[in-house]
């Protein structure tokens, strides 16, 4: 099951957030599962068009997420959700 970890900055808004294993075969599915567990979190990570926000970064197995490459999440995937340095 993919293992997802979060920047501690998100805990300001979602105090119960902690790293966890989530059944998901794509980033889209992962976002959907996260929203079920942490109501509202999707709006922090993606905009209203579903695009990952400009200054939020997803890493998969330590590589930046690229929708063209990472079409499917492996069961062993490690996902880091990070606030990008570019956002200040």
């Amino acid at each position: 099951m993919p293992h997802v970890m979060f920047t501690s900055a998100l805990k300001t808004f979602f105090p119960n957030l902690k790293e966890e294993y989530i059944e998901a075969d794509s980033i889209e599915a992962l976002l959907s599962e996260l929203e079920k567990k942490h109501h509202g979190i999707q709006g922090y990570l993606v905009d209203e068009k579903g695009q990952i926000r400009e200054h939020v970064k997803f890493y998969i197995d330590n590589e930046p997420y690229d929708i063209k490459v990472h079409t499917e999440l492996k069961k062993s995937a490690q996902i880091h959700i990070i606030q990008a340095i570019s956002g200040g």
Partner: peptide, 12 residues
């Protein structure tokens, strides 16, 4: 009632 908008750089 107080209404506040936050323009987060990262989170929208």
């Amino acid at each position: 009632h107080w209404w506040v908008a936050i323009n987060h750089k990262h989170w929208g």
